[in-house]
Design a protein around this nucleic acid. Structure first.
Lengths: 190, 190
DNA sequence: TATATACTTGAGCGATCACTCAAGAAAGCC
DNA sequence: GGCTTTCTTGAGTGATCGCTCAAGTATATA
């Protein structure tokens, strides 16, 4: 009976993610989204409900992809090398819509307004931090990192460094690759 | 002949700075500014010309204050201790409208739109970075830091760490003071 | 082929955006 | 006090915001 949508929902979410990631929440208008997704307002709202709802889907997708990239790195090279390579991976992608982290951008933009998306971003950041802690712990288990360190402390600092790196990478005239390497190197002597 | 303004221009700029710092560029409307500055649109535009022009004044003031705080620290405690204390100083102020750096917030929000305020923010960041490099160099001159390090490299990494710290400080449930201490400690063993 | 059931379209909603401007109010000089 | 000059006021500008909804279109079932 029904008629099927002409679009690929997952593809639309990815396109929305790229737009939101690059331009931010307020910086992305419905008109921008309509153009990027090739959708009229009616279809848009039938499919996603609201701009905020789509932003949340986009952010979920962003976070999921980031965690997945780290998971693959860990599986291929082990926990320590994954953590060491991740900074460079995070800023190296030329096709990425922005160097800075979408989660931190969202947090900084919307935190002051107590917008639900800001706490959602914080949740995703927390989950990543926990994942980092797990990898630090695994690296300790195999003897790559001194077990006297608290993995949670290491993860907290690592994530902070990563956020700083990615803000710096957004700047012009900054050799972010060098910073990434320094972060990576600082893990070697733990 | 003329009639003098009833307001203190410098005070207005400070209030605007606090508002822009906390809520960002798009997040601060003219209505917000009118309320915070107690000005009607006519007076506002006569005094500042545009929202962007006032934002620029506010950002200049922000950058100037930051540099001044560092200058005072350096004068009182010397270059190394100034650099060591600065991270904590940057996030400790309870009255500050936000923990994150206004320059990085502006950069992240407006860079994708090629907005002039974004490159202005980048200029301010660059100036701070150069100031950090000077202090690292001075610390080397007095023997507090190994002179084999490149002060520019140290400054670049230091600023990146600082930006990360201040993004982290904006999050809820993060012990930013601990991160600040770690950044500080990492300067001890140079 | 007829019908039911989505999906698509796009004009247009009220609200808010940054901003303007003519008129009124106040202060300094004669 | 009168005049000039500036500052203050606030209603109102066109544009854009996120979003709605009735009408039109296409598709799968009967």
């Amino acid at each position: 009976m029904p008629r099927k949508p002409t679009y690929d929902r997952e593809d639309l979410i990815k396109r929305a993610r790229d737009l939101f990631w690059r331009r931010g929440w307020a910086g992305t208008s419905l008109k921008d989204l309509e153009a990027a997704l090739q959708m009229k307002p009616g279809s848009f709202y039938a499919a996603f409900g609201s701009k905020d709802a789509l932003f949340e889907l986009a952010m979920d997708r962003y976070a999921q992809d980031g965690a997945e990239r780290l998971r693959v790195l860990a599986q291929e090279h082990g926990p320590l090398q994954a953590l060491q390579q991740f900074p460079d991976v995070a800023i190296a992608n030329k096709d990425a819509p922005a160097k800075a982290c979408m989660l931190s951008k969202t947090l900084l933009e919307l935190q002051a307004h107590n917008h639900p998306l800001a706490s959602k971003a914080n949740q995703h950041l927390l989950r990543m931090e926990q994942y980092f802690a797990e990898l630090f712990q695994q690296a300790q288990a195999v003897g790559d990192i001194d077990s006297r360190h608290d993995p949670k402390v290491l993860a907290r600092r690592y994530q902070s460094d990563l956020l700083g790196l990615r803000v710096s990478a957004e700047r012009e005239g900054i050799d972010a690759k060098a910073i990434a390497e320094e972060i990576s190197d600082s893990l070697t002597c733990l």
